[in-house]
Computed example of a mutant assay.
Amino acid sequence: MVVTGLNANGFDRNTWIAGGKQGFFEEDNFTSPAYVARLDYKGVPGLRVGASFYYCVNAGSNSDKAATYSKIGSIPVRIYTADAQYINKYVTARGNIVYGNLGNSAALSGKNTQLSNLSPYSRITPIAKNAVSYAGEVGVNIRSIFNNSKIPVIYPFARYEYYNPQEKGEKRQTMDKRNQVSMWTAGLNWYALPNLVIKADYTTRKIGTSKIFGKGRYNSENEFAIGIAYIGWFIKK
């Protein structure tokens, strides 16, 4: 399964979540269904603001061996998201935030350490109570700003992102600071053709800090990337 979005820099970002397809010999329990609500506002030209909420009363009862987690009580899962986008001829701007809350995470961590090495579930602990990710990005259209059709369609852009799957734990849980990432990306997109984008960017990741302009206790990761993207239909509808 792939979730696809478009950056303010005009380039597709694909996030692989999981295989998404149930195996031939797999069986999914539906003891505790999840509920999702989503609301979008588009009352202003070029603006979209949205929010969503995901809730599962007891994720433990949906496991293939529900008895493993039944003695620790309910394991509720809550995921809150908010996102906004504004586009006009000069600027493309986007922002989003995802915040997750897992109930009974300390007891769940304790149970998972007792799982067999042959278990299909991850045995990595501790499992965090809270996970968070937020980002903001902006790109500008140089041609529109100077109102000159002879200038190539070039979008300089900048993006800031913070994420941490172990943002906070329950009492007596120690979270791994190496999962804490503060990241800047800056670059250019050149639309050589209406459907053809040539992209170059530089990214720096600060590991072990939540500061926007700060250095973590671990080595930073820096990379330069260049790519080409074509936007179009390969198969007729």
Results as ranks from 00 to 15, higher is better:
residue 34 A to F: 03
residue 40 D to Y: 06
residue 90 Y to K: 14
residue 185 T to R: 13
residue 183 M to C: 09
residue 132 V to C: 09
residue 56 C to K: 13
residue 120 P to D: 07
residue 157 F to P: 00
residue 8 A to W: 03
residue 150 K to F: 08
residue 64 D to F: 07
residue 229 A to R: 10
residue 22 Q to A: 12
residue 136 G to N: 01
residue 130 N to G: 04
residue 201 D to K: 11
residue 173 Q to F: 02
residue 207 I to Y: 09
residue 57 V to E: 15
residue 89 K to G: 07
residue 131 A to F: 10
residue 158 A to D: 00
residue 6 L to Q: 05
residue 220 S to K: 11
residue 27 E to K: 14
residue 58 N to V: 03
residue 73 G to T: 03
residue 197 V to G: 02
residue 125 T to Q: 09
residue 13 R to H: 11
residue 213 F to D: 01
residue 226 I to N: 07
residue 146 F to L: 09
residue 211 K to R: 12
residue 74 S to Y: 08
residue 3 V to Y: 15
residue 96 N to M: 13
residue 40 D to I: 01
residue 12 D to F: 09
residue 111 K to R: 13
residue 127 I to D: 00
residue 98 V to Y: 15
residue 47 L to Y: 01
residue 234 F to I: 02
residue 39 L to V: 10
residue 233 W to E: 10
residue 31 T to H: 11
residue 26 E to G: 09
residue 120 P to W: 07
residue 31 T to G: 08
residue 209 T to S: 01
residue 96 N to I: 05
residue 9 N to L: 00
residue 118 L to W: 09
residue 108 L to T: 13
residue 177 K to P: 11
residue 106 A to K: 15
residue 77 V to R: 08
residue 228 I to K: 12
residue 27 E to D: 07
residue 80 Y to V: 13
residue 125 T to I: 12
residue 102 L to K: 15
residue 15 T to A: 14
residue 133 S to T: 09
residue 80 Y to S: 10
residue 128 A to F: 06
residue 181 V to G: 05
residue 35 Y to M: 09
residue 233 W to K: 12
residue 41 Y to M: 01
residue 211 K to W: 01
residue 221 E to N: 09
residue 33 P to M: 02
residue 195 N to V: 03
residue 109 S to E: 02
residue 144 S to T: 11
residue 53 F to R: 05
residue 26 E to K: 11
residue 4 T to P: 04
residue 17 I to H: 15
residue 84 A to D: 04
residue 14 N to T: 08
residue 111 K to Y: 05
residue 52 S to M: 09
residue 86 Y to D: 02
residue 200 A to C: 11
residue 18 A to H: 14
residue 68 T to L: 14
residue 77 V to W: 07
residue 91 V to D: 02
residue 143 R to D: 06
residue 120 P to L: 08
residue 64 D to E: 07
residue 72 I to C: 05
residue 23 G to F: 13
residue 69 Y to M: 06
residue 234 F to G: 08
residue 39 L to W: 10
residue 45 P to C: 04
residue 101 N to L: 14
residue 77 V to A: 05
residue 70 S to T: 08
residue 226 I to P: 04
residue 204 T to Y: 10
residue 72 I to Q: 03
residue 223 E to K: 10
residue 153 V to E: 07
residue 192 A to N: 02
residue 223 E to G: 04
residue 230 Y to A: 02
residue 6 L to T: 08
residue 206 K to R: 15
residue 26 E to P: 06
residue 105 S to G: 04
residue 157 F to T: 00
residue 187 G to L: 01
residue 210 S to M: 05
residue 189 N to Y: 02
residue 33 P to Y: 03
residue 191 Y to H: 04
residue 178 R to D: 05
residue 141 N to V: 04
residue 44 V to R: 05
residue 128 A to K: 02
residue 134 Y to C: 11
